[in-house]
Design a protein around this nucleic acid. Structure first.
Length: 424
RNA sequence: GGAGGAGUGCCUGAGCGGUUGAAAGGGACGGUCUUGAAAACCGUUAUACGGGAAACCGUAUCGUGAGUUCGAAUCUCACCUCCUCCGCCA
């Protein structure tokens, strides 16, 4: 959510943000609604003030004078009631519109409509050249009995999977590696809820417009697709102290995604699954653009270091306007090299929001002058597991006989240097 | 799921239908005093929205939402959260 005053004074900036993000929204309609709302607020407030004065007077009256006064106020109340009704309606409309106003993308965000228009910022690692035909992660993992998709589908339906043997061990090893790397950097490790109230999804900007991407329970709780939601909910409604900023969290959670719009896509293997686990980085900082930019770069660097430790070739792209979420000011994706597809695929996403989320979640702090301000928020994938990093880890490190080399950094956690035939 | 109890400002806690945005104490901040500190004393100590150039004025907020009433922190209903006990499950 943006400040209505900002929207009122800068409708052209909002219109340009809409154009750049390829979104449709009638800004003038919002401004008109706000105007009507303010007129009504004034009317209602004035009527209430009148009522208060009259009520206070009644307390001092008695007898027929009192009855007469009560009668008069009753009349006033009727007028007030109809105005209040109207105000409620317009307020609801206003709130709904406000939730759909996008945040303004940074000037450095490239123009473009879809992920095809994202721009490469840098690349790391050598793309492996195999002198044999590389196998897909599905073949490799099945060869080593690391995964079971058939039984996954039997139990959990389409996109279901089981990880077993080295598949399970590898996941735990990676989780442990990431945890240790990030805790060393001062991030607070947390295990956060995934089953979460609607208001937190609205607050983080996943709702109202992303309803169909989420699983909803019969108790009206939703299953989160990322630990970001649980992390942001943690400080919802609170007033924080500036001296504790930036608050850096490394949160672990199961993640659930309906993948409603992608039924035909990535139907095989672990590429696109309904359920996985993820380490996510979440930061709250003081309300300062340069601080947000600095921390944003830090988040990508952290994510890159994890990929480097896993020896996975990747590149970083700056997402174009059309590929940004409603609240995002700027986003970098990390895409890992996938030998079986002969291209990069997205594994990480790092973005900052300014006060878009914290305004919705009412997360504030007192600055040096004692003024209350909305904090800034940022988040970035640290590592999703098992899906894509596991795929690229396995595919990039395969050898001719199908064995899988374990990256050095991971060996202490895995207890071996290689996954070989019969090694389970 | 059943039975009870509770939710008030930064904290503790009073108020249980009418000048209560809210007593009192504590904390924090500022001042007086002091060489300095403590103590003592004095003062300040919400947020949001609307109006206004501003001083300031108005409105809302005592878990949340609705209701009763001329008037609600105070009465009614629903919901949420916490505590105690029982049941069920792990």
């Amino acid at each position: 959510m943006l400040d209505i005053k900002f929207i009122r004074e800068n409708p052209d900036i909002i219109k340009d943000a809409l154009r750049k993000k390829h979104l449709e929204f009638d800004v003038q309609n919002l401004i008109d609604t706000d105007e009507k709302r303010r007129v009504l607020i004034k009317e209602v407030d004035d009527l209430r003030a009148e009522q208060h004065t009259a009520s206070d007077a009644i307390a001092k009256l008695a007898g027929p004078e009192r009855d007469e006064a009560i009668k008069k106020v009753k009349n006033l109340k009727e007028r007030l009631g109809s105005r209040e009704e109207k105000l409620r309606t317009i307020e609801a409309l206003y709130e709904n519109l406000m939730l759909l106003v996008p945040n303004v993308p940074d000037l450095s965000v490239p123009e473009g409509e879809s992920d095809a228009d994202n721009q490469e910022v840098r690349a790391w690692g050598d793309i492996p050249k195999f002198d044999f035909t590389p196998k897909s992660h599905i073949e490799l993992m099945e060869m080593h009995d690391m995964v079971d998709f058939e039984r996954g589908a039997k139990t959990a339906g389409f996109r279901g999977y089981y990880l077993k043997n080295d598949g399970a061990l590898l996941s735990f090893a990676v989780w442990q590696l990431v945890l240790n790397m990030m805790v060393k950097k001062g991030y607070v490790p947390m295990i956060v809820p995934s089953l979460i109230k609607k208001e937190v999804f609205v607050g983080t900007g996943y709702l109202p417009q992303g309803e169909e991407d989420l699983y909803r329970t019969q108790d009206d709780l939703y299953l989160s697709g990322t630990g970001e939601v649980g992390a942001m909910g943690y400080y919802m409604g609170e007033i924080l102290e500036e001296k504790n900023f930036p608050i850096k969290m490394l949160v672990f959670s199961p993640c659930f995604r309906r993948e409603a719009g992608s039924h035909g896509k990535d139907t095989k293997g672990l590429m696109r699954v309904h359920e996985f686990y993820k380490w996510e980085q979440v930061i709250l900082s003081k309300a300062d653009h340069l601080e947000s930019v600095r921390l944003h770069e830090e988040l990508v660097t952290n994510a890159e270091e994890i990929m480097q430790a896993l020896e996975i070739p990747y590149h970083v792209v700056a997402n174009c306007g059309g590929d940004l979420g409603l609240g995002q000011v700027k986003k970098y994706d990390i895409e890992a090299w996938l030998p079986s597809e002969d291209r990069y695929r997205e594994t990480h996403s790092a973005s900052y929001f300014h006060d878009f989320q914290t305004r919705r979640l009412n997360i504030r702090y007192r600055d040096e002058e004692g003024k209350l301000r909305f904090a800034h928020s940022l988040n970035s994938t640290a590592l999703p597991m098992p899906p894509r990093p596991l795929i690229s880890l396995i595919e990039n490190h395969q050898e001719a006989d199908g064995s899988i080399r374990i990256p050095k950094a991971l060996q202490p956690y895995m207890g071996k240097e290689k996954i070989e035939k019969g090694s389970k």
